[in-house]
Design a protein around this nucleic acid. Structure first.
Lengths: 412, 412
DNA sequence: CGCTATTTGTTCAGCGATTGAATTATTTGC
DNA sequence: GCAAATAATTCAATCGCTGAACAAATAGCG
């Protein structure tokens, strides 16, 4: 993650402080042990005098706090370690999915401080009603957070569909949403967060994108470039390049579900032929395994598949192998194109990873030109369910760390 | 292109000036008419006083010059327009390809000020000898440039193959190169350029990447995100995202030639099956059109194909249609994945664009989910042959514009 | 022709932020 | 109990931007 924020326009005196605040805070956030002011000075190249001044601002703004003195080593005045504050600003994460609503709060350190999930079939519910329910849950979350000394400073909403820059949900096929103006609908409710300069009050984004962001900031820190595949009803992918989510020109990147794996194969509802979704989508796997999908709610289908595979069921194993092969063809394309070295299987695929990884790796080995020089890692996501909500909240919290000036300019 | 360069480390007083130098110079570079100091002040948000001081530095360093007074409009003291200097620093572009060597010099304004092409079959030539020839050509180019008041401050070399961070050419199959340490080989010759802080003396990169950069900076300015496909013997692609070349984790992005378009199709020399190269590579098209490729040198094959297609030759038309369809399947994958809205056909494809574009567009229309909302443009490259060499030289020149401080810190 | 309005560009005091050296603070080891 | 060592703060100096006043140069108008 680019922890410093490049100034777009004029660089004035104040920008200097803004940049150094972000530099020092970013260093504190990524350090493996609480650094002292002196550590920060050598790490950043600033003088100790400047670091002291910057840290004073950060302490006054409750973005960092001094930790108990670390175990000593050698002579000299003991250092006072600096850590991200567990009170102060926090991010609100929201998620609307086919069979649940989720709300969570993540603090500066990345910890999930609150979490609520409401299971229900959202397809028959009108968008406005679903959002109203979500707002209600968020209100409770905010009170909960306030008791912990947390102030919500921004919200991000994950939706399983295409979202444009303005937050308009153009199409969420599995949810039945089309052209839903989320920001306008949410504006009808009392505001959930305290507005902070530089931090958007609400970001609406694709579920796959936000889940990928969650993976990016999960502990322990992984690579800064990877492909995160969310296999739910559709198949979406979040592309993280150099620690930043790549959204594409219009924010519609990652439509991996419609990469052609058999160009003359089965017709797809997107109008194309032989799309990945037709071979590795949840429905396709379930059908190939011989399970009647009608009796299985979406969230138990993968669990049931994993059970069967574990028990050695031949149909399930074959279905998973075929799906993994199709996935591998698509993943090989992506790896060839973007030269990534890590692929994370998230969403419904995470639980199926033991059976999906081998065929995926086999296809990569056969089709990726550069695999000989440097191997590609394929692994399941470390985040559990509702990864998108956690990623959404975390993206807000990370933004405070990346641009602390806005929060500090506030009351204090 | 991100014209300002984000400071990675400590932000000190001097960084302020560095950033504002880049800001003002970038504005001068992208303006459509020579801006005055006052124009720059309003455009950047700096005060006129600051802009004057910054411009004074730029004038002293010969990065900009004052143009003749622009046609007047209204009352007031006439403005003095500022333009990028056509003397001063310039970039050296080098290219080794299968059937030619190319050298060129590009100045700050993006103009090609010198160009030499040496046609020869380079496959039987040892890498060291090829580079020695290139150095000789570059020496002549430097003298030529010096007479025009240009100083070469950096070089970039385009190679049709995989290059790692250190400039080692890992594999250039069509050239027969393997593990060629280009920087070490060039270091044995007298230096071609004057070293400037912050500007790398030599960058070695893939031909497709540098050709894409050339396209990015061609006039008139096009989109800042696109896919540039270079169809020569192999098929490579340069991916430009938000005005920056995307190189991938190890710099090996863009291997579009080995995207599977028929996963169970013809075996490919890469070890995979049904790779794009087998269906839309130059050899594949020539063979499908019924031309004996042995009698055709690589650089005339596409010209001959275009002639035949123009004349209505059925075999040629069919071959081009099939190749375009295969290309379209691959391009549709890329567009789905990265959400790009522009695809540029470069290299050998540029001349064949009239016949390739329709089937490519057809596949995109059928397979890209979001094509309904926003159309994808497919067009031929505006740069001619040796696009990679021009792009290479231009990338150096652009770097001076993006980070002028290094050049100014020099003698002056 | 001369005056005014208008816009461009420069000069200069003021100010904010970083630097570097000196100073203070706190602990270990002898 | 004292010296050495490391951490953190204080303060004059310096650098670069701002804002306002000022100088320069032209068009419009009577």
């Amino acid at each position: 993650m680019s922890l410093t924020h490049a100034p777009a326009g004029a660089v004035r005196q104040g920008s200097l402080r803004e940049l150094n605040l972000a530099l020092v805070l970013g260093r504190i956030a990524t350090a493996d042990r609480p650094p002292s002011r002196a550590d920060l000075a050598t790490a950043t190249g600033l003088t100790r005098a400047t670091v002291s001044a910057v840290v004073e601002d950060l302490l006054a703004g409750r973005l960092v706090s001094e930790s108990d003195p670390a175990p000593r080593s050698g002579a000299g005045r003991p250092a006072r370690g600096l850590v991200l504050a567990d009170q102060g600003p926090a991010g609100l994460g929201l998620e609307v999915n086919v069979d649940y609503l989720a709300v969570c709060v993540v603090d500066l350190t990345g910890q999930v401080r609150h979490r609520t999930v409401h299971r229900a079939d959202l397809r028959p519910v009108a968008p406005a009603d679903a959002l109203a329910l979500l707002v209600e849950m968020a209100g409770a979350a905010r009170e909960d957070a306030a008791e912990d000394g947390l102030t919500l400073v921004g919200a991000a909403l994950a939706v399983p569909g295409l979202v444009d820059d303005a937050g308009l949900v153009r199409l969420a096929p599995n949810l039945g949403w089309r052209d839903v103006p989320v920001p306008a609908l949410l504006a009808e409710h009392p505001p959930l967060i305290e507005q902070v300069p530089g931090i958007p009050a609400l970001v609406v984004d694709n579920e796959a994108n936000l889940a990928a962001l969650g993976e990016l900031h999960s502990q322990p820190p992984g690579p800064s470039s990877f492909l995160h595949i969310s296999g739910e009803v559709g198949i979406g992918a979040g592309i993280v390049l150099d620690g930043a989510l790549f959204r594409g020109v219009r924010g519609w990147s990652g439509e991996i579900g419609h990469l052609p794996v058999h160009p003359e194969g089965r017709p797809c509802r997107c109008g194309g032929q032989g799309c990945l979704e037709q071979y590795a989508g949840q429905e396709a796997i379930v059908a190939a395994a011989g399970l009647a999908r009608a009796e299985l709610p979406a969230d138990t289908a993968t669990a049931r598949l994993a059970e069967l595979a574990q028990a050695g069921d031949a149909d399930a194993l074959r279905a998973l192998h075929d799906a993994g092969t199709a996935l591998g063809v698509a993943v090989a394309s992506v790896v060839n194109l973007l030269d990534l070295d890590t692929v994370v299987l998230g969403g419904g695929y995470a639980a199926l990873a033991p059976w999906l990884c081998p065929p995926v790796l086999a296809e990569i080995g056969a089709r990726v030109l550069t695999a000989a020089w440097s191997p590609v890692t394929v692994r399941p996501s470390t985040l559990g369910a509702e990864a998108a909500a956690v990623g959404a909240a975390g993206s807000v919290a990370r933004r405070i760390v990346a641009q602390p000036a806005g929060w500090l300019a506030r009351a204090g």
